[in-house]
Design a protein around this nucleic acid. Structure first.
Lengths: 140, 140
DNA sequence: ATGTTAGTTTAGAATTATTACAAATTACCC
DNA sequence: GGGTAATTTGTAATAATTCTAAACTAACAT
């Protein structure tokens, strides 16, 4: 019977101090699987927590990513997004509706040329038009 | 007997006007497989072509990428790099020496969840420590 | 409970990368 | 060679992220 831990439990287990910005931002990311940017997180928590600064969103997300509680994903256009699902998966970025979709794929790097390298993380991003946007004729 | 076309031929074939910035920048990218950023290209051509502006490097690389003469690759830290090899391949970014290595892999997106989507391009980036840096003890 | 302290947050300034703009220039077609 | 639309240039503007120093606070020890 598995039980999804809440933000506070996860933070505590990672040995992090429980501060309001960390709890609020992490809870936001755990409950919104939209892969938001720092700015989007900031705007998403603003009404309920006007005291949390944008700088803290940057600080907290970076810290949580360092501690592997989040992953940072970089879109093909360079925007940085955060995701609370830390197991490897790819992402599909729709050029029309701008939504980001998870891809349940496993990467095969074929690193024969780089024998002996030590890989820390992998980013797999595809870009294009999602099925709904294709249907609506938004693909070109 | 295949013969690698020069920058001018490729530009002409793509229907682009032959301008000095385009020729110089494209030649630079064809002969330097270091995956440079716009700023690195600008500094690389500066001595020989002091008249070419940084704005032109941005304009030209974007235009050539639109015309599929180059690909734009986004590093896991968000930096934008350009590569004159346009066939799909992945990249490995060494965290220690900052070099970028090509990976001859093919992606397998497993897009069952996104049946009907139209994919325009794929970015596969791994991060870690290259064999030489591992050997030198730069990995952590 | 209270004090101490190191870690964290805040607001704003600074930095950096990229884009926008308008004037000057230039490649290409005739 | 001349006309014209595309391109380049230099600079200004924008946007995203990082830096900084002062204020605050969670966690621990008392």
């Amino acid at each position: 019977m598995s039980y999804t831990e809440d933000a506070q439990t996860r933070l505590r287990r990672a040995g992090l101090r429980l501060t309001t910005p960390r709890i609020v931002i992490y809870e936001y990311l755990l409950s919104h699987r939209t892969h938001p940017t720092c700015d989007q997180i900031y705007n998403g928590i603003r009404e309920s927590n006007p005291g949390i600064s944008l700088a803290s969103v940057y600080n907290v997300t970076e810290k949580l990513a360092d501690e592997k509680l989040l992953i940072k994903i970089v879109a093909p256009d360079g925007e940085r997004h955060y995701d609370s699902i830390t197991e490897f998966h790819g992402h599909f970025f729709c050029l029309a509706c701008k939504k980001i979709f998870d891809l349940n794929c496993t990467p095969d790097l074929k690193m024969e040329e780089l024998k002996g390298a030590k890989t820390t993380d992998i980013l797999l991003s595809a870009r294009g038009y999602c099925p709904e946007c294709v249907r609506k004729g938004h693909a070109d």
